[in-house]
């Protein structure tokens, strides 16, 4: 039995030890907001937070997450109230098909935490730090605009 803590709720799961965190979230817990784009850690669509840091859930084994707090896109909003990053993505039209969007948002939220001084973060710096999250539709300029809107 594996004890997973996801979005503040605890789940006891009987898991195949090969199960990735991504598949556990999607196939066992029904949290399908986290997407599988490549299953190789190359696209970022599966980005979630583990203890507040961004993690590629396709490259993380579910059994290794015991004792850690996992947050997915479903756990980002406070009830009905969108997280400021979610709100900014809507306002800046930072998406088209929406498939990479949960990963972009989770990555962006954690990225801003990683930076010591957000005010010194340049556009080029944001682009570099977000380059692990691919968007084939090309909503990149609007994603940048959304992140800039949230950055204090």
């Amino acid at each position: 039995m594996v004890l997973l803590s996801v979005n503040g709720a605890r789940h006891e799961l009987d898991l195949d030890p090969r199960t990735s965190l991504l598949d556990a979230l999607r196939e066992r817990l029904g949290l399908t907001g986290t997407k599988k784009g490549c299953d190789h850690g190359q696209c970022g669509a599966c980005t979630v937070h583990v203890d507040g840091r961004r993690v590629l859930s396709c490259l993380a084994l579910a059994v290794a997450q015991q004792g850690h707090e996992v947050t997915t896109i479903e756990g980002l909003a406070a009830g009905e109230r969108l997280h400021p990053m979610q709100r900014a993505f809507v306002e800046c039209d930072a998406l088209q098909c929406g498939f990479c969007t949960p990963g972009q948002i989770m990555s962006a939220v954690a990225m801003l935490v990683e930076v010591d001084d957000r005010r010194r973060l340049t556009d080029a710096g944001i682009r570099e730090r977000m380059s692990g999250n691919l968007c084939r539709c090309g909503a990149y300029p609007n994603i940048l605009a959304a992140i800039r809107r949230v950055r204090p």
Partner: peptide
């Protein structure tokens, strides 16, 4: 104007 389906997409509720 904002995309009418954006809310579903930013919360992970859009179902693919």
């Amino acid at each position: 104007g904002e995309r009418v389906d954006a809310g579903l997409k930013v919360t992970g509720q859009a179902r693919y």
